[in-house]
Amino acid sequence: MRQDLAPDQLGAFQQFSNQAFAKGTLDVRTKQLIAVAVAHVTQCPYCIRSHTKAARKAGASREQIMEAIWVAAEMRAGAAYAHSLLALDTMRQEDGKES
């Protein structure tokens, strides 16, 4: 159906995707491990499935895939931790107004 509704855009996206995952400075396995991690951060179930399969096909071990997922988890948790400074700063400003 996507092909029927927007064939040019679909073709351009597929070409972009193929190029993004082609061997370059980074090998395909590394790119797929990155994709597995990003898919977990964006929480896309379709991407998790497809890039996990692609990573395995590219030679990634189960341990490497799990390690990439742990990196994603740390980055997501790290963002919440880092952004807590906004809440702390807001509370500090509010405390200053009450004085």
Rank of each mutant, 00 (worst) to 15 (best):
T25V: 12
R76F: 09
A37D: 01
A54I: 01
H51D: 00
A87W: 11
D95F: 15
S50T: 08
E74D: 11
W70N: 06
T30E: 09
R2M: 14
E67G: 07
R49T: 10
E94C: 08
A39P: 08
V71M: 05
K97M: 15
A68G: 04
Q93S: 04
F16R: 01
Q19Y: 11
I69P: 04
E74G: 12
I69E: 00
Q93K: 07
V41T: 09
L5A: 14
K57H: 10
P7V: 07
A87M: 13
E98V: 15
H83W: 09
P7A: 06
G24W: 12
S50A: 11
V38S: 02
L10Q: 11
G78A: 10
H83A: 04
Q9D: 06
V28E: 12
L5V: 14
A82N: 11
A12T: 14
C44T: 12
R49L: 13
A60Q: 07
K97R: 15
Y46M: 15
T52Q: 05
Q32L: 03
A72E: 01
E94R: 07
P7T: 05
A73C: 11
R29F: 10
Q32I: 00
R49C: 08
D27G: 06
T25I: 07
A68D: 03
M66P: 10
H83L: 06
I65Q: 11
C44D: 12
A79S: 13
A55C: 08
W70I: 05
F13W: 11
Q64R: 01
R92K: 13
F13L: 08
E63L: 08
L5D: 02
A54Q: 04
F16P: 00
D4I: 13
R62E: 13
Q93C: 06
S17V: 12
V38N: 01
N18D: 13
I69Q: 02
I69R: 01
G96Q: 07
T25F: 05
Q43H: 15
L5F: 15
V41K: 01
S84I: 05
Q93H: 07
L33G: 02
T25H: 04
A6H: 06
D95K: 12
G78H: 10
M75W: 07
A79E: 08
L5G: 05
Q93W: 10
A39I: 13
S61N: 02
H51F: 05
Q93R: 07
D4T: 09
P45L: 04
K53W: 10
R2E: 09
W70F: 08
K53P: 02
A37Y: 00
G24N: 08
R2C: 11
G59D: 03
L86I: 11
D95W: 14
S84E: 02
V71W: 04
A77W: 12
S17F: 15
E98Y: 13
Q93I: 04
R56I: 05
Q15F: 10
V38G: 01
K23W: 01
R2W: 15
L88S: 12
R56G: 02
S84K: 03
A22S: 12
A82Q: 05
S50C: 07
V41E: 01
E63D: 06
G24P: 06
A77I: 14
G11M: 09
V38P: 00
A37P: 00
K57Q: 09
E94Y: 14
Q15A: 15
A79Q: 07
D8H: 10
A22C: 03
A73M: 13
A12P: 01
A39V: 10
R76T: 13
A54H: 03
R92F: 15
R56Y: 07
T30N: 05
I34D: 00
K53I: 08
P45C: 03
L33A: 03
